[in-house]
């Protein structure tokens, strides 16, 4: 965390957001700035501290294996950006 460099291109690729060169520069500067503020956390001694993922300590909130109605296909497909018959359609998938 002492080196708050962020590889915006790599992160944008993971996040699937196209960025212009200008955006890469701007976001890089802004987020670099934020990471410097965030670096303040290094001052905290967290060696023996447990991580909090959830503040409420519930356990085993489960549902019974009982069917509920599904949505109407037409309602759902009507909102699809592109459909073909009964399916959602997407542009070609490259790779795996």
């Amino acid at each position: 965390m002492s080196d708050p460099i962020i590889d915006i291109r790599y992160v944008a690729k993971l996040a699937q957001i196209a960025l212009t060169d200008e955006e890469i520069e701007r976001f890089g500067a802004q987020l670099g700035d934020l990471l410097q503020h965030v670096a303040a956390l290094e001052r905290l001694d967290t060696e023996r501290v447990a991580a909090t993922a959830q503040v409420v300590e519930s356990r085993n909130i489960l549902r019974d294996d009982v069917a509920r109605p599904s949505l109407d296909r037409e309602t759902v497909l009507a909102q699809a950006p592109q459909r073909q018959g009964k399916f959602f359609r997407v542009p070609r998938i490259i790779g795996e």
Partner: peptide, 15 residues
């Protein structure tokens, strides 16, 4: 670990 986990630990300290 440096960011997310540390932040979760700071969250514990704040609570």
């Amino acid at each position: 670990d440096a960011y997310y986990v540390r932040a979760q630990k700071a969250r514990t300290l704040i609570a």
